[in-house]
Design a protein around this nucleic acid. Structure first.
Lengths: 153, 153
DNA sequence: TTACATGCAAACTGTTTGCAAATAT
DNA sequence: ATATTTGCAAACAGTTTGCATGTAA
């Protein structure tokens, strides 16, 4: 039960133990226990694509309890300030991507998985004239993949 | 209020009155009253982007009653056989597009509206190498639009 | 006549919200 | 001390489903 003890420091409060505290403060967000925990899950192992409930179960499995409602709140908040980015790929669950740079996605239709592609969507904005009075703020590009049928060579 | 009287013919059942009957038959779908009615709404006035409930209210307003469940069934069925195409743009409601050709979309963030752009997504498939064993079956490209801020010249 | 489609209501999934208790500053 | 955040459960939106009734073939 101690893999994520947090809260009571004795001495000079080790400054490097909570690397995400500064991240939160940079965005003017209060550094609460669950925000720090979720930020750690999100940003400790490379770019990720999570849904609210995958992240919640992950947190709970690691004894970093956060209610589903809070996970939603935190993910929405992070998305709002730009720490993560929400994707609407499958219509149902919202996927949050920790990679906020301009890139595209593979969507594996068989597994539902999502993978990043280093292809800037904005480069396609040149091919398109936005309607009068509007500007293109983002270009979402999703390459939908199907397992190649062996008969279909 | 009689723009869609349907049902009771007297004589030799005018053959051209239901142009969508043949559409349904072409896909092996039984030509029921509500399928014909919904097909008419979908395909009588150019390309459209509808949700289940906009289409249902439209039908009901025209005295072509179809329950919401049936509208869902019919739209899903049409999408399945390829008469329409489902879009996952906003995460919430599924939008059905009567234009099944390869094209892209504008998404107006202020109004939620969707508009077609004659830009084939598949042309971007050249820039991308699909993972081993997979093939790109569709490329969804959405240009998200925001109203230009006058201060932001 | 018979298999299939419809309508209704109830179930279901994903997400948001109201409010009391907990907590960060 | 006080404003903010959390957790729970209830509300909510969109969609699907079970089953009796209706209907196309």
């Amino acid at each position: 039960m101690a893999e994520f003890s947090q809260g009571s420091f004795t001495a000079g409060a080790p400054p490097s133990k909570y690397p995400h505290r500064s991240l939160l403060e940079r965005y003017g967000l209060r550094a609460t226990r669950q925000r720090l925990g979720l930020a750690r899950l999100l940003f400790s192992k490379g770019n990720r694509h999570v849904t609210a409930d995958t992240l919640a179960s992950e947190a709970n499995a690691l004894k970093m309890p956060a209610s589903l409602a809070t996970v939603y709140n935190v993910l929405n908040l992070f998305a709002q300030v730009g720490i993560v980015r929400g994707l609407a790929i499958e219509g149902t669950k919202t996927v949050f991507d920790t990679n906020t740079s301009d890139h595209s996605h593979f969507f594996f239709e068989d597994t539902g998985e999502i993978a990043d592609i280093p292809l800037a969507g904005m480069k396609f904005a040149d091919d398109v004239m936005p309607p009068e009075g509007y500007e293109i703020v983002k270009v979402d590009v999703v390459f939908r993949l199907r397992r190649k049928t062996s008969t279909n060579v």
